[in-house]
Design a protein around this nucleic acid. Structure first.
Length: 284
DNA sequence: ATGACATGATAAA
DNA sequence: TTATCCTGTCATA
């Protein structure tokens, strides 16, 4: 689940249900117990996201930095009347607002790659290493300045959080498909209008993701065909993407067989017809 | 029961 | 490049 849209959605949910009130902080699993004890009873002032990072501002210049990594979750639940249930599984951090903005609520963090107590100065240091974030409507210029001179593949640059923040493997695959760009094209071979169109598209798609909580990249006109192709391929769950995890299945647009490979330890997917391979650089 | 895998990132080699 | 961490889910046995 966790690409940038997930974290922004989370910031929004925390803001709606927990921010502004005193929170009980605990670590049922124990790995955040010392910090939780320090924070217990503090007031949660704000929840903010930048790319895939989430920051919880508590009073007294204390910031909880959360990064969900590959499989972390942070579930925010309202508990009108019922009281808070016993923790299930490995709950690293639990926040409970008895008197949240919309009534009692709690949030359980599991599996995060980062859950740490920082100062606001330390948070600033993390932000300084992140590129612009499409979800925040940032100016894409700093990202473009990196890409236009880079000898790295655009598929790698899109995932580099210091180039731009928030894009993960699904949005990467899908945005490249939607713009007919092969993942191995070098950054410096891209034309500016193409990158700016990708950025604008990311801005819209990821904003949708914040609203719906899921990554939807397939245009209405292709939904039915995708469904039919999925059924024909005998897949158990229907796909919601053009190329992501569709290796070996036909492209919805042109029928070519979607390809998959590993780039920088991550799976990449593309259509060999809609996303023509770059001319191989002369090697010698 | 066991193992592979995942929408991530880092440190070491 | 590889190993490693974090946890849950799904497929296979």
């Amino acid at each position: 689940m966790p690409e940038g849209h997930t974290l922004h959605r989370l910031a929004r949910r925390l803001d709606a249900h927990l921010v502004g009130s005193p929170v009980a902080v605990s670590s049922p699993q124990g790995r955040f117990a010392r910090e939780a004890a320090l924070l217990d009873g503090s007031r949660l002032l704000a929840a903010e996201a930048w790319g895939k990072h989430l920051f919880l501002d508590h009073d007294d210049d204390r910031v909880v930095h959360v990064h969900l990594g590959l499989y972390g979750r942070f579930d925010v639940t309202r508990t009108p009347g019922e009281g808070v249930p016993a923790p299930v599984g490995q709950v690293r951090m639990r926040l409970v607002a008895e008197d949240g903005p919309k009534g009692p609520a709690y949030a359980d963090l599991r599996g995060a790659t980062a859950c740490e107590l920082l100062t606001s100065a330390e948070r600033a240091a993390i932000l300084a290493r992140l590129g612009p974030d499409p979800i925040q409507g940032h100016d894409p210029t700093p990202a473009w300045e990196r890409i236009r001179v880079s000898r790295s593949p655009i598929g790698t640059l899109l995932m580099d959080q210091s180039v731009l923040a928030g894009v993960g493997n699904v949005y990467r695959a899908e945005i490249l498909f939607r713009h007919g760009v092969h993942p191995l094209r070098l950054g410096r071979s891209l034309r500016r209008p193409v990158f700016l169109a990708m950025w604008e598209d990311l801005r819209v798609l990821m904003a949708d993701g914040v609203r719906t909580g899921r990554i939807e990249t397939v245009r209405d006109e292709h939904r039915e065909e995708l469904e039919a192709l999925g059924a024909a391929a005998g897949r158990r769950r229907r796909s919601r993407s053009y190329v992501y995890k569709r290796t070996g299945e036909p492209c919805v647009v042109c029928g070519a067989t979607v390809r998959g490979d590993v780039l920088a330890a991550r799976n990449v997917f593309w259509c060999p017809h809609c996303q023509p391979a770059p001319r191989r650089r002369a090697v010698r």
